[in-house]
């Protein structure tokens, strides 16, 4: 499920008469209840590459679509763990040792053991703030970055944006779009199927 806001509807004249390729089928529904019902049947029909576009969050639509929970939290956990370890190793290396180290034989670095207020060189309490901050930094950046990546962003255009009718996805219409790359997609059958769900209008979307 995603909510699209289209700000410049005129910016989407994509084709100059060249042959276009079928990208998917777009079915329009008039009410949240209709799309909710239809989404369940698309899910049961076994389609995988499809999506709903609605002007406002329809509660429970994710579950109805059979959207699985994201694995982003797991990725973020390991990103946080990495940040924490890097924070520790960085400080342990720079302040705790006099070791010398060369990266790719180009960058040469050395530890700089520095005695601060009589504390041991390897003082974990002093390292904690940096470990904490790096944990947060890597977790936050990973969350934002992976979220964008999983959403297929950034992208400059989308086949749906060429459809005038689709503009109402940000106003008062509800759309189910099944992509042509889906293994169950057969144009005529899928079109009939979408119509059988009570769609008020079905049209092809070209790439």
């Amino acid at each position: 499920m995603s909510t699209l806001t289209i700000e410049r509807p005129t910016a989407t004249k994509a084709h100059d008469g060249s042959t276009s390729r079928l990208w998917g089928l777009m079915a329009e529904f008039k009410t949240p209840a209709a799309i909710f019902e239809a989404a369940g049947r698309v899910r049961d029909a076994g389609y995988r590459h499809w999506d709903c576009h609605v002007p406002f969050p329809v509660h429970g639509l994710d579950k109805q679509m059979g959207v699985k929970r994201t694995i982003i939290p797991v990725i973020v956990f390991f990103a946080g763990l990495t940040g924490c370890s890097v924070g520790f190793l960085l400080q342990a290396f720079t302040n705790g040792t006099g070791a010398e180290w060369s990266f790719w034989a180009i960058v040469w670095v050395t530890g700089y053991p520095f005695l601060i207020s009589g504390k041991p060189l390897l003082s974990i309490p002093a390292f904690v703030p940096v470990m904490f901050e790096l944990t947060i930094l890597l977790s936050a950046l990973t969350t934002a970055g992976v979220m964008l990546l999983f959403n297929g962003l950034p992208r400059w255009n989308h086949p749906l944006l060429a459809k005038k009718r689709f503009l109402r996805a940000s106003d008062d219409r509800f759309f189910i779009v099944i992509e042509a790359r889906d293994s169950r997609f057969i144009r005529s059958k899928t079109e009939d199927f979408l119509k059988s769900l009570g769609a008020t209008h079905v049209e092809a979307v070209e790439d």
Partner: peptide, 12 residues
């Protein structure tokens, strides 16, 4: 708890 501990540990 850690903030309280660290400042006191550090100040010594």
């Amino acid at each position: 708890a850690f903030s309280q501990y660290m400042l006191i540990w550090y100040g010594n």
